[in-house]
């Protein structure tokens, strides 16, 4: 952790300009990257689940949790999931490395 104070910088009583406060220490950059990707994985899992939920709901009744867990995408749905996942990952990595062809 940075040795900097644990609160956002603000003008002091003398009215001097605030010093810039960095919430994350430079050595936390890797951790931030890992956290982003870990979060991205969770987001993808949920998005994937949501898409399948829509399909299963259309085909069956209300209690679909187990059906979703066991649902194996057919070729058409798998193709759609593949395309959405690819676009999702490209968008994510594009934010980290703007301008890089992916």
């Amino acid at each position: 952790m940075s040795a900097a104070p644990a609160a956002p910088a603000r003008a002091n009583a003398t009215g001097a300009a605030p010093t810039r406060f960095e919430f994350l220490a430079p050595e936390q950059l890797d951790d931030l990257g890992r956290a982003v990707l870990t979060l991205a994985r969770e987001v993808w899992v949920l998005r994937d689940r949501q898409r399948i939920l829509e399909h299963v709901l259309a085909e069956r009744g209300v209690d679909v949790a187990d059906a979703i867990d066991r649902y194996q995408p057919g070729p058409e749905l798998q193709k759609r999931l593949d395309a959405e996942r690819a676009a999702f990952v490209k968008e994510l990595l594009g934010a980290l490395a703007p301008g890089t062809p992916l």
Binding site: L37, A40, R41, W44, V45, D48, R49, I52, I68, D69, R70, Y71, Q72, L81, D82, R85, A86, V89, K90, L93, A97, T100, P101, L102
Partner: peptide
């Protein structure tokens, strides 16, 4: 057959790996 969470997780890490090669 994998369950949804496991399948989607493995799909995701593989997709990331493919993009790693592109990077």
């Amino acid at each position: 057959e994998l369950r949804q969470r496991g399948r989607a997780s493995m799909d995701f890490v593989a997709e990331l790996g493919l993009n790693g090669a592109r990077l």
